[in-house]
Design a protein around this nucleic acid. Structure first.
Lengths: 200, 200
DNA sequence: CGATATATTGAACGTTCATTCAATATTATA
DNA sequence: TATAATATTGAATGAACGTTCAATATATCG
């Protein structure tokens, strides 16, 4: 259905935008630089994304899609086996695989735009609500959590995860980093434990 | 001791930079615009802040100082009475007074710079560690928490607060906002309760 | 007061920016 | 193959950018 060349070019341009933003920041990545990076004139970039604003808007969609991708394997498992271990999910949330798929610098740069752009804010909120719904589904399938307020629990777990990511980004020393990750992971485990029916 | 005019001008310029960044974002606030806003030529701005980088660096110091200011009244109380109620402190952490003193958009914009600038990262980390130390002092003075790992507890409390701020920024509806604040506040209370010696 | 330092001005620099446009090449369609 | 649609080029635009500089005003101080 959709135009092939057009779609590929668009993807290529957003990829390039993301790549350069990772290195130099969004604010230092111009249309001209994207063009040069991809070996095309800036006018071609603008042919596909008629303004810088639209370009940024598409970068954000790209980033949010990537973020969902991180959860894909876990959700596939849930679909297949009709069950996924919440603890494994939490482990994955705290794993650094994350960073391979999504640059935190670009992510938070885009995040900071929510304060001046309502559409971006809505997109970000929708993503975060989706993440919570995913977790809720996993929790709902766990018999240890039967009849518990899994929506609340998902909310509480994610707020720890998100706070942890925010805070941990300030630490480079792997040892300190891992030690702190362990603390926050425990904090989430504790939330689960508190809700679980004793079964052993 | 220090030069009066110079200091006042510097303060004035950073104030203006902050003001305009709040409206249009840091990335859209140029030296020329700051000058125009304050009725001075851009060359005067650069006389006090020889490069844009230095200007941004000073804006960040300004922001981090403001953030510490928010805790001032609480810490003054601690100093005076050698005690401050942790629950009151938590309430204050979640109060929206915050937003009056510090714009979240500017704050997170600057935060996103930590990923490409080590000095900024260190400044941010130092601030966050200071915040935790402040809370630890409060917790240490509370007899219900005697002999507890208050450092750990402070870390766990702040990670919820920071995650909450990150997440709550996506919600405009005051009703939804307040409902979620209540959840996260409870989550922190629960952390305190878990550690408190039963005394009633 | 005279000298020295600081504050302030305004013009100018070259560069980069986002964006436009008309011309040309390529591809799809009839 | 003729025609229409799309892709691509390259040159050009004016505006805004950060930064420099020499000149002038004002304050400081011996």
């Amino acid at each position: 259905m959709g135009n092939k060349i057009s779609d590929e070019r668009k993807k290529e341009i957003i990829d390039g935008f993301y790549h350069l933003s990772k290195q130099n920041g969004i604010e230092n990545t111009s249309i001209a630089k994207i063009g040069k990076h991809l070996g095309m004139p800036p006018s071609l970039v603008m042919h596909y994304f008629p303004s810088r604003e639209i370009l940024i808007s598409n970068l954000i969609s790209f980033i949010l899609e990537r973020m969902l991708l991180i959860y894909q394997p876990m959700l596939a498992e849930l679909e297949e086996q009709n069950y996924a271990d919440p603890h494994t999910f939490v482990d994955r949330l705290f794993s650094r695989d994350w960073n391979l798929l999504l640059d935190d610098g670009v992510f938070y740069s885009c995040y900071s735009l929510i304060f001046r752009n309502k559409r971006i804010k809505n997109e970000y909120r929708a993503l975060h609500e989706k993440l919570r719904e995913n977790l809720k589904e996993i929790l709902d399938r766990d018999e240890n959590l039967e009849d518990k307020d899994t929506e609340l629990l998902a909310e509480q777990i994610f707020v720890v995860v998100e706070g942890a990511y925010y805070y941990l980004s300030m630490f480079d020393d792997p040892e300190v980093y891992e030690q702190k990750v362990a603390i926050f992971k425990d904090q989430v485990y504790e939330l689960l434990r508190k809700n679980e029916v004793l079964s052993s």
